[in-house]
């Protein structure tokens, strides 16, 4: 089956290669093979596949990665606007169930 990819050129993921220490953690935690390691540095190779889950940035000890992470969930965003909070899917609330 062909691999699903969402919209081109919208992802907020950024990697500062100068800061990167080449530990490779981002590669281990990324669920969509966005990074590759070469020349002792990580590189973003498949940016459009990024779903902004934030695992790489959180696990980057030298803070070389930034991403505006959150849930890619329309119901969550609508809920966030209505309740004036961050977009959040209702997984843990008693009624909602988006993921």
């Amino acid at each position: 089956m062909k691999e699903l990819v969402y919209l081109p050129d919208v992802v907020t993921l950024n990697l500062c290669e100068a800061t990167c220490n080449g530990c490779g953690m981002c590669i281990k935690v990324c669920p969509h093979e966005v990074f590759e390691l070469s020349g002792k540095k990580a590189h973003i190779v498949r940016k459009d596949f990024c779903m902004e889950c934030g695992a790489c940035a959180l696990n980057c000890q030298v803070k070389a990665i930034t991403v505006n992470s959150g849930v890619g969930c329309a119901a969550g965003i609508i809920g966030g606007i209505l309740n004036n909070t961050e977009p959040t899917c209702g997984c843990s609330d008693s009624k909602a169930a988006c993921c």
């Binding site: 699903l4 990819v5 969402y6 919209l7 919208v10 992802v11 907020t12 669920p31 969509h32 596949f49 990024c50 779903m51 902004e52 505006n68 992470s69 959150g70 849930v71 890619g72 969930c73 329309a74 119901a75 969550g76 965003i77 609508i78 977009p87 899917c89 988006c98 993921c99």
Partner: peptide
């Protein structure tokens, strides 16, 4: 269908905002 973005495993927050 738009709400299915939340169930999917490949949509980003920035992308869904743009779509909406």
């Amino acid at each position: 269908a738009m709400n299915f973005t939340g169930s999917s495993t490949y949509t980003s927050l920035s992308g869904v905002k743009k779509e909406m």
